[in-house]
Design a binder for these strands. Structure first.
Lengths: 223, 223
DNA sequence: GTATCACAATCTGTATACAGCTCTTAATGC
DNA sequence: GCATTAAGAGCTGTATACAGATTGTGATAC
């Protein structure tokens, strides 16, 4: 069953590790240690690392090797703005989709709403949250846009998990945000849909911004 | 003076080649030939190729190697939509910038308008066009957004050159589009600025779409 | 003339080897 | 005790070697 190449397999593994900050922010990545951990030679390992650099998960300092990306408020804020840009434009485009696609989105929400409210696993929660937003953005039928949005999502997934954990433990989560967006979409009300979506993302961005600023010390929880 | 690593140097060279479609769309890339042409071994070459895959310039078919990206109307349309998404949101954010930054954009336009109208070199024309849009997007102060926009620009630069060449030889170029956008920005008129920018990009996208569809056969001009 | 199959050449993907640089550490001088 | 420095280990970046797969070619059968 090990059909795929070592490089792509290692690339997927390393991306998962980078998403969950298995490498600490700013940390240097030891290639020799990784070859032992992942049981590959340095050639495919470095090919995967180079791809992760291009994807924004790592940086490469010449002569010093690969480092994990930083995790500062500025970077997170920028990525949330990027997410807004992509999702809002995708929404505009998606409103041109045919009725069947829109009602499918509504059905998706109806089906997942209950399990979303009942879910206690934060990772699963984020997965469902991302799934809704990706389904919404998918209405645009733009593969490149979806690819970039997926990349942005992966790069902020960690702080998004912390954000949702906080919301669940605290008081403030607004479970009807997705519903309001979806209803505006079903009405093909572009103004209301865009306002709801933009407000939803920016609210989460603001929460996360405060989180990253104030709680940086406990933001990284080692295994 | 050869300070930088082979891999990054080769990466820059290959990106330039990919931008100008020195590799034909869909063409398979012969690594051995490239090692001779660029005078490096396959290891840094393949590291650079892997980064270009992540950047969207190439694709990698398992067991068959690297291929140049396609050049089909759908792909181009998607990238133009992506450009709209990024630039429009950057404009929204940029309107919050301080006066000095806005007037600097106006000065940039004043300074370049004459040479833009007089310029006959299409490559230089595209460079100036991109420079204006990047300066506009730069007002947002979002490095990640600018990075993605730069990548999108590089991937559509070839068709943009063809588009501008056609506009210059024909009748239709609207040289005042940038001016109208800038004036709305200086007035901090968000609605007018967004409408002008969106209309400008979508007009060019539509021209390019027709171009790619109808003139695909002469779109690729080998050296 | 067309399809099938075998063989050879070529290419991809990976492992390994090695040169040069970087960082650490220990020793020395003050 | 502290800064400086020199030696050593470890690491990065690149070249090369090799196994397996793929593609192209030519022969053969029909």
């Amino acid at each position: 069953m090990t059909e795929k190449s070592s490089a792509s397999r290692v690339h997927a593994q390393l991306r998962d590790m980078a998403i969950r900050f298995a490498f600490k922010p700013g940390e240097r990545i030891n290639e020799s240690a990784l070859t032992r951990a992942l049981d590959v030679s340095r050639t495919p390992l470095r090919e995967a690392l180079n791809r992760l650099v291009a994807e924004g998960f790592l940086t490469l300092r010449p002569g010093q090797g690969f480092f994990c990306r930083a995790l500062d408020p500025q970077q997170v804020a920028e990525l949330y703005q990027l997410r807004t840009a992509l999702e809002v434009e995708a929404l505009r485009l998606g409103l041109q989709a045919e009725d069947a696609a829109l009602t499918a989105l509504g059905a998706h929400l109806d089906a997942s709403e209950a399990s979303y409210a009942a879910c206690t696993d934060v990772a699963e929660l984020v997965r469902m949250d991302e799934a809704f937003h990706l389904a919404l953005a998918g209405l645009a039928g733009n593969g490149e846009l979806l690819r970039m949005l997926t990349n942005v999502n992966e790069r902020i997934r960690y702080v998004r998990m912390v954000n949702l954990r906080q919301l669940r433990s605290g008081a403030g989560e607004d479970l009807s945000a997705h519903r309001r967006i979806t209803e505006a979409v079903l009405r093909r009300d572009a103004g209301a849909a865009e306002a709801a979506l933009r407000g939803h993302i920016e609210r989460r961005a603001e929460e996360t911004r405060a989180l990253v600023r104030l709680a940086y010390s406990q933001l990284y929880v080692p295994d």
